[in-house]
Simulated assay, not measured.
Amino acid sequence: MPRLAGALALALSAAACTAGDFGRPRPGVWNDVIVPSAGLWSATARGETVSPFRMTDDEEQLRDRAWRFVMPAHERSFFERQVSDFAHSRVLPVEAQSSTASDYFHALTGGSYRSQASRYNRLAEDANADRLLIGPFRANAGRVVAADRVRMRAVDASPQVPPEQRDPAFARVVENEGLILWVCERVNFRIESYRYALANLVVEMPSREAIRAERSIMALEAEAGPLCKLDLIGAFRGGAKPAPADKPVVYKG
């Protein structure tokens, strides 16, 4: 355990030194080679599904778009952001992330603001920014799911696909669906965090600005609904795996 804690501390320090604009990982050997390799090794060691397939453009973009939603909503949550960044790269399991709704409120109120209106405005702006980015992510996810349906139908139907391609294909579908479900979970967590912050701001510093913040959160909830109802194949939830090569089946859906 001490070794693990030390390794994590070293990794977090290195990540902190390589943070780019808005906290995003800056391109380089550490973020483009070392961390992804460590992520695949760690995920495999934990028994998670890992595919060796190269990613499509849409799959790459899906992971890029997911980054915002799996990060803590406030940049002052430094340690939590680093943990989430490593969860995004699969170095750490997603369970390592904080699920404490009060984190955002404490980060929001921890800095110096001119007035309570600034805090309410920041809350409304964060919720609005999330809302505007959910649509593009949902569209991206829809393209990935559609391509995965084609992928699995080809696996089932084509005798030219060798057996060793079947499991990696299914593993990629599991990875894609797992990411979409994770983003849905973290978006709902953001909404919970925003509502916690709004309620406690009203108690501590009542202001008419709370109305705008409330409307922003409601709009985010409305936009998040369709994402969490996206029609997936069901692989991540334990759906059908590819049949043996001599017993092809057609995937439903």
Rank of each mutant, 00 (worst) to 15 (best):
A129W: 00
M152F: 00
V187T: 14
V174E: 01
R195T: 10
E214L: 12
A129T: 05
N140C: 15
D130Y: 09
L198A: 13
R143P: 00
V202A: 08
A141M: 09
N140E: 13
G135A: 10
M152I: 01
R215Q: 13
P163Q: 05
G110F: 09
S158A: 08
R208N: 10
N128W: 00
V173Q: 01
A210D: 06
L132K: 12
R208V: 14
D156V: 04
I217T: 03
I217M: 03
I180R: 15
R215S: 10
T109Y: 05
R172T: 06
A147M: 06
N140L: 13
R138N: 10
A157F: 03
A199F: 05
A141G: 12
Q160W: 04
I134E: 03
Y113F: 15
I134F: 11
L132S: 05
R172G: 11
T109K: 03
F137M: 10
E214M: 04
N188I: 03
L179T: 15
V183E: 14
A147R: 08
L123D: 00
V155F: 00
V202Q: 14
G178T: 13
R138F: 07
I134G: 07
P206H: 07
R151N: 03
A199G: 14
L198T: 11
A147W: 01
P162A: 04
E177A: 09
C184S: 15
G142S: 12
L133R: 10
G110H: 10
E192F: 09
I211V: 15
V203A: 14
Q160A: 10
P163N: 04
V161Q: 02
V161M: 05
L132M: 04
V174R: 06
V145I: 15
A199M: 05
A210H: 06
S216N: 03
R172Y: 10
Y113T: 14
E185Y: 12
M205K: 13
S158P: 02
Y194G: 06
G178R: 11
A197G: 11
R172L: 14
P163L: 02
R122C: 10
N128A: 09
R153G: 05
D130R: 00
R143G: 04
W182H: 15
I134R: 04
L179K: 12
A127I: 00
D130E: 04
R172H: 02
A171Y: 11
A213C: 10
Q165P: 01
G111N: 08
Y194M: 09
V202R: 12
A117T: 08
R212D: 11
R153C: 07
A117E: 10
I134L: 12
W182I: 07
V145Y: 11
L198S: 11
A154V: 03
R131V: 00
Y113K: 12
A169C: 12
E164P: 04
V155M: 01
V155C: 02
S193G: 12
P159C: 02
P168Q: 14
V150Y: 01
L198V: 09
D130W: 04
C184E: 11
P168A: 13
A139M: 08
N188A: 13
A129D: 03
E214Y: 05
R166Y: 05
D130T: 02
A213T: 09
R190S: 15
P136Q: 09
N128L: 03
E125I: 03
P206R: 08
L198E: 08
V174G: 06
A154Y: 02
A197L: 10
P168E: 09
P206L: 01
R143D: 09
A146Y: 04
A146H: 05
Q160G: 09
V202W: 00
R114C: 08
L198C: 14
